[in-house]
């Protein structure tokens, strides 16, 4: 599969169809990381395997703006797994990314692995092996058993008595340092000024105290309602190891229950929870 990706990347760069290919590479210390390839001669850097769990779609909103006023938006190719494709679908629905400025290199996903070689939990709940949208598909889709996400992790927390649930979250959020890595890594968190960072502290002050931290995470979760594709990027980057996905998955579960099984990023329809007025299609901020 990697030879297909490299060949495609080389071709796209050689004929100038894209400015850059975003994929994965192995850094000098052996860690897998996002790679931005601008030269056809550098496509050998690209790799793809079970370690490539980052959601590269998060880089697209940033690249979908002109560098300087009046300049044209460059076209970017991006390696997209089935889960990542759902994030991209949300961004396309919300007009954050122009479809003709993205070349989607879809990959047939083998499922991602933990550092110890075991399958990532989120992948054991997923039966999508081919992205919902792509311009080219690389790799042969492996056979996977049909699985259904029963939200067992969420149910476990839901089953706790209220006091225990509160104590659990206060304990977890106490460690939050407000680094905003969860928000920055999230493909669908793209407000130009976050409510948590307004100069006037209208919603949240600057303090690193539990009320402020809880409020930030709750605001973020509600703004992700019906939009979060459960890609786990927030949790994967958290330097304090807070199980942030649980918050978003709780809402995703409720949305699915209430909205007839709605799952974000699976259709062209924007989420039923976001109201868009005419002329507001290109949202700058989610409220």
């Amino acid at each position: 599969m990697i030879e297909d990706i490299r060949a495609l990347a080389r071709e796209l760069l050689e004929k100038g169809a894209v400015e850059c290919v975003i994929g994965y590479e192995v850094g000098p210390t052996g860690r897998v990381r996002p790679a931005f390839v601008y030269e056809p001669g550098e496509v050998e850097r690209l790799i793809f395997d079970g370690r490539c769990d980052q959601n590269l779609v998060t880089y697209l909103t940033r690249r979908n703006k002109p560098r300087k006023k009046g300049e044209e938006v460059p076209t970017t190719a991006v390696v997209v797994k089935p889960c990542d494709a759902r994030s991209l679908r949300v961004l396309l629905n919300e007009h954050q990314v122009q479809r003709d400025k993205v070349y989607i290199i879809g990959v047939a996903c083998p499922g991602m692995q933990n550092a110890d070689g075991t399958p990532e939990l989120r992948c054991t709940r997923c039966d999508q092996r081919v992205p919902l949208l792509y311009d080219a598909l690389c790799g042969e889709p492996p056979e996977v058993p049909t699985v259904r996400d029963a939200y067992e992790d969420v149910q476990q927390i839901e089953a706790l008595p209220l006091e225990e649930r509160l104590a659990y979250w206060l304990g977890e959020l106490d460690r939050c340092i407000r680094c905003y890595a969860c928000r920055q890594a999230c493909p669908t968190c793209f407000c130009s000024v976050c409510e948590a960072e307004r100069d006037d502290s209208l919603w949240v002050g600057i303090a690193d105290r539990i009320p402020e931290k809880a409020f930030f995470h709750i605001i973020r979760a509600f703004h992700q309602a019906g939009r979060c594709t459960e890609c786990n990027a927030c949790e994967a980057v958290c330097p304090m190891g807070i199980p942030l996905s649980l918050i978003n998955r709780k809402i995703a579960k409720d949305v699915a229950q209430m909205m007839g099984g709605y799952r974000a990023g699976e259709s062209d329809e924007p989420t039923p929870l976001v109201t868009m007025l005419t002329g507001e299609e290109a949202i700058d901020e989610i409220h």
């Binding site: 933990n114 550092a115 304990g171 460690r175 949790e235 980057v237 958290c238 190891g241 199980p243």
Partner: peptide
């Protein structure tokens, strides 16, 4: 050491592997 002991020892996120 802080945080719950049961975490994801195999996680790619070093912070999620165990107590910090």
């Amino acid at each position: 050491a802080v945080g719950p002991q049961e975490k994801a020892p195999g996680s790619r996120n070093p912070a999620a592997q165990g107590q910090q």
